Simulated assay, not measured.
Amino acid sequence: MIYAEILAGGKGTRMGNINMPKQFITIDGTPIIIHTIEKFILNDRFEKILIVSPKEWINYTKDIIKKHIGENDRLVVVEGGSDRNESIMSGIHYIEKEFGIEDDDVIVTHDSVRPFLTHRIIEENIDEVLKHGAVDTAIEAVDTILQSKDGEIIDNIPIRDTMFQGQTPQSFHINTLVNHYNALSGDEKTILTDACKICALKGENVKIVKGELFNIKITTPYDLKVAKAILQERISK
Rank of each mutant, 00 (worst) to 15 (best):
K62H: 05
K62A: 01
D63H: 06
D63E: 14
I64A: 01
I64T: 03
I65G: 03
I65M: 05
K66R: 08
K67D: 12
I69T: 07
I69Y: 12
E71L: 14
E71S: 14
N72G: 07
N72R: 01
N72E: 04
D73V: 12
D73E: 12
L75P: 04
V77Q: 03
V78R: 00
E79D: 04
E79Y: 05
G81I: 00
G81E: 03
G81N: 04
D83P: 06
D83G: 13
D83V: 09
R84N: 15
N85T: 12
S87F: 01
I88W: 01
M89Q: 07
M89W: 13
S90V: 06
G91N: 02
G91Y: 00
G91K: 00
I92A: 04
H93R: 15
Y94T: 01
I95P: 00
E96N: 08
E98I: 13
E98S: 08
F99M: 09
F99T: 06
G100V: 04
G100Y: 03
I101N: 07
E102H: 15
D103V: 04
D104S: 12
D105T: 10
D105M: 03
D105P: 06
D105C: 08
V106W: 01
V106E: 06
V106G: 07
V106I: 10
V106C: 11
T109P: 05
D111V: 09
D111K: 05
D111W: 11
V113M: 13
V113H: 13
R114N: 14
R114E: 12
P115Y: 10
P115N: 05
P115L: 09
P115D: 06
P115A: 08
L117I: 14
T118D: 10
T118M: 10
T118V: 14
H119V: 15
H119R: 15
H119K: 15
E123M: 08
N125R: 02
I126R: 03
I126N: 01
D127M: 08
D127T: 12
D127I: 11
D127R: 10
E128S: 14
